[in-house]
Design a protein around this nucleic acid. Sequence first.
DNA 1: GGGTGGCTCAGGGTCGACCCTCATGGCGGC
DNA 2: GCCGCCATGAGGGTCGACCCTGAGCCACCC
Lengths: 222, 222
Amino acid sequence: MSDPIRVVLVDDHRMFRSGVKAELGDAVAVVGEAPDVDSAIKVVREVQPDVVLLDVHLPGGNGNGGSDVVTGCAGVQTPGGDPVRFLALSVSDAAEDVIAVIRAGARGYVTKTISPGDLDTAIRRVAEGDAVFSPRLAGFVLDAFGATAGEIAEVDEELDRLSQREREVMRLIARGYQYKEVAKELFISVKTVETHVSSVLRKLQLSSRHELTSWAMSRRLL
Amino acid sequence: MSDPIRVVLVDDHRMFRSGVKAELGDAVAVVGEAPDVDSAIKVVREVQPDVVLLDVHLPGGNGNGGSDVVTGCAGVQTPGGDPVRFLALSVSDAAEDVIAVIRAGARGYVTKTISPGDLDTAIRRVAEGDAVFSPRLAGFVLDAFGATAGEIAEVDEELDRLSQREREVMRLIARGYQYKEVAKELFISVKTVETHVSSVLRKLQLSSRHELTSWAMSRRLL
DNA sequence: GGGTGGCTCAGGGTCGACCCTCATGGCGGC
DNA sequence: GCCGCCATGAGGGTCGACCCTGAGCCACCC
């Protein structure tokens, strides 16, 4: 297995990161760690690892599928070099979490109950370009993707009409964040948040944040 | 600090247990581990640790407050020896989780985002009989227990402090009704609705209708 | 090069949410 | 009879939510 695989760990619990490192030992080289989305992006840019092992529920992410987490990282690929692969590591085995993550570009999804040996294997396979899923998840992952013939598409047409940024704003608003808080969270101005919210409400044909909350809940986006 | 404190770790994620051990190092002696409720009880009986550090959401527990986890362990005390203390370690910062755990007999509750140093301190304090809570949680823990004078009251005392009319208004507001709509529904003026809402928010120590919604949902009042 | 769409922001406006103070009348307890 | 709680409501204020217009920047596409 030539050189050890270079891995970046992203998880907001330092304890957990430490545990993964301890359990994996020399099997892989942990070349970076990050507790949140922003520093994750930075670290991944710097060290260009083979695999990013990341928790789905992160501060800065919305804890809700983590698509922005992964897509945020996805922009980080070096055109010339080897691609950076993402392996999601989550406590959740909910279908929507898994599908959102895969949709966002991750190559695998395993739960935190995985044994160190299996995790090692999963990391290697992802590094080689394979897709890896915990056995319990494999079934409905295949269902979801088989059913939609190629692209994910179709799943939620209304949601698809929103841009990435609009979706991020939408999720926070639906959760009860104030504009000011959303602005701080996303590092943009309150005015920009207003603009995005207006677009979201218009595109979804809703008229208030309360309806947005119901809408989001009915689609299990929260 | 004489002998190191003897700790049993209970968490279904081996990675996490390993991380805790690695981070705490020699500060405490991890004398046992368990991934689920049954083996936790067995291990605790065997080794009689000073402190049990346990995740709230465990297989075998109901993932819903974890009271059976802790009560299960609570029966394990040796009459003669030093008492075994429980420190809950959870990803959740939801009030109901915290209160259920405390109610079940735990002496502290910290979130998994805690730093190793703080966790060490928390373990020591719990071992000495103190109660320890993450700062964010301390507030409503005190509220919950101060308000109910000793035992957790059978009925919801906070809810009892609301008058009949206030409760009606509260329900509608929590459902997303606008003041105007509530007024029409109850045949009173908007100004009266405002007054009631203010009372409700003050009595429940909330600050917005969004928090009201969460509060009401957490009590299944919707 | 021009068009399109996404992301960013500003000014300025309406209206709802929430607060404080104040006032009325009824009802029950000390 | 006074006090306290409740229900009702008004006046007046601050601030957040939401809208419209307009605008600059960038990336992509034809």
